[in-house]
Design a protein around this nucleic acid. Structure first.
Lengths: 190, 190
DNA sequence: TCATTCCATTAACAATTGTAAAGAAAATGC
DNA sequence: GCATTTTCTTTACAATTGTTAATGGAATGA
């Protein structure tokens, strides 16, 4: 249950058996079906999710359209992060793309974990930094790359998601319409 | 010299006179002319800058073109943040847009300040959060808004910069060409 | 197993932005 | 004060993407 979690955190900090016991007590295991909203727009995010299995996406809505901001794979922490940080209503929705197996912790329990285990501060900071860096990479790609270049990079880094995620969701994540993405794919296969 | 700094930090934490003395000893005051590169692409960012006066921009280069990622005004902390966090070579350049008056602290001195004054952890975390949130706002605008909408929002939030920053730099920050921005400005004034 | 829904591609036309160049005004530097 | 450089707008044409609709195949659910 915590194998994936420790495989990930071991790269950052090592926990003793005692610390692991405390950590495991702070999380709950949850199986969630696809298309389930973990955090809704307009509501405050109160939980953080470690993905053992499945996919989760973060999206915005505008004029009735859903526009994907991020897709979280296994072994990532998923959340509507700014809402979690500030405890303000989220402008995003966090929703499962597949049936998921998650390790869930509340914001409150996380604070208590920070108090109880100082090493958690390091892990928390690393997770936050990674989150910032992910956002910077996406933003710089929007700034620097054409839609076709964004698609190419996506394929290079997350090609497996083409098989798991509907293309219209990937298109919205790349900032283009499904029609445009289809044209790009056709151009690239010629 | 530190008035602006404390005006900003007082919203987050209050420092005692003793703490202020330590803080002031960790920073240096620097006057920097416009078009000066504070951090260069390919180099590691080793300093953080509080802007007392002036403007600083963060930009990327691609195919010989400079594309602006952020513009820092007075009373903000400027840096090539991911390079500073990870101590890896930056993919961005940090450069002054006007003659500036900066309070400068090195990454090393900042770490020491964190050790010496626990309240600095809170400030540091808040600054990091604000940085993440800024990035999210820009990214979500790229995702959700057309170039015209981005221009409108920019004017609403930073209209003063239209007088201080060359329009071609603002255009690149908004992800469009100067010609397109000129067309948008014309359309909006009709 | 079949009806319904969802997904992906394609076509036609519209809209917006990019590119290149020109010209005028403002800013800069000697 | 003047020459040079930079900035900004405009124009003409090109390119890419958006929009709408249609079609066929895959997935889903009863």
């Amino acid at each position: 249950m915590f194998e994936g979690f420790y495989k990930y955190t071991e790269q950052i900090v090592s926990f003793t058996e005692k610390e692991k016991a405390i950590i495991e007590g702070a999380f709950t295991f949850r199986q969630v079906p696809k298309k389930f909203k973990l955090t809704e727009e307009g509501k405050i995010a109160r939980e953080l999710y470690f993905i053992n299995k499945g996919l989760v996406r973060l999206y915005y809505t505008k004029d009735g359209e859903e526009i994907t901001g991020f897709i979280f794979k296994e072994h990532l922490f998923a959340s509507s992060y700014d809402s979690l940080l500030r405890q303000t209503p989220s402008i995003q929705t966090l929703e499962t793309l597949e049936d998921c197996e998650l390790l869930v912790i509340t914001a409150k329990a996380l604070e208590e974990l920070y108090e109880a285990i100082p090493k958690m501060q390091v892990l928390g900071r690393k997770v936050a930094e990674q989150r910032f860096i992910n956002g910077q990479m996406i933003l710089s790609s929007f700034i620097l790359d054409s839609p076709e270049e964004r698609y190419k990079k996506f394929v290079a880094q997350h090609g497996d998601l083409l098989l798991r995620v509907p293309h219209h969701i990937i298109a919205s994540y790349l900032g283009i319409t499904p029609v445009s993405m289809s044209r790009i794919r056709k151009r690239m296969s010629e």
